[in-house]
Nucleic acid binder design. Sequence first.
DNA 1: AAGATCAGCAACCGCCTGACC
DNA 2: TGGTCAGGCGGTTGCTGATCT
Length: 253
Amino acid sequence: MGRVHPCCSEEKKVRKGLWSPEEDERLASHIARFGVSCWSSIPELAGLQRCGKSCRLRWMNYLRPDLKRGRFSQQEEDLIIALHKALGNSWSQIAARLPGRSDNEIKNFWNARLRKKLRRKEASSTAGSKEPAASHRRRGGEDGGSGTHPPAVFNPLPAPEDRPRPADSDPSAAAGSTAAAPGGSVLVAGNAAAADSVAPSPTSTASACTEAGGCDDGFLKAMVDDASFLFGDFYLDGNQDGPISFWEGHAFS
DNA sequence: AAGATCAGCAACCGCCTGACC
DNA sequence: TGGTCAGGCGGTTGCTGATCT
């Protein structure tokens, strides 16, 4: 179904499946030396029999030096819940606000843990309500991992990244968009009014986050406590390039 | 001890979008 | 202006180790 990606076509005899340490090493060292210009050319240049998409995925989800890995902290968990409530399944946007975590990691975490947790919570709070029918799959969560979040929760909003970033730099403009958002009610805890007073500023985020992508719990808590940052300017390094370009610039410039 | 089930994770698939020609 | 291509994203699947019976 759909067009076959040229770089992934059978003609090129690309490898699939798990990456070997040697492949990881080749990809990582190639990117460390030359950076990323064109993913589709990287396999050839790095001597890998993979398609460019596969290389990109491996890099983004596993090899990136700023990735934290390991268990999610309670703060991160809370933040993911808050962000998912506001952004829905926009994992990349959620990941952009969780330094050191990839969208895939967050998505997996959500599908495996949080959704189940929330369901249980809902079920226990809704007396007499029945649990959804069992999954058609043996594994993959209570709803079969369909990937759709509860419609009652999701209210599609224009995410900050959908707006041109330079124009976003005006905090007052951000506040305005918050107020104007038709789905403003989905703001977690409904504390949009506190936006100006508590939202982490780019400056404060820069000081709270390390180059390795780690943020202290206080910082994460601040974000959880005040979801208003969702509609403001939150960039890890404060230069509005976002977390990815943050480390890219440091590692390979 | 062995099979069944669960949970977590890695990676693929298919679609969409923007850039380029 | 329409077609092509590459990058990016969300959804889904498959594998593997852990836990349960």
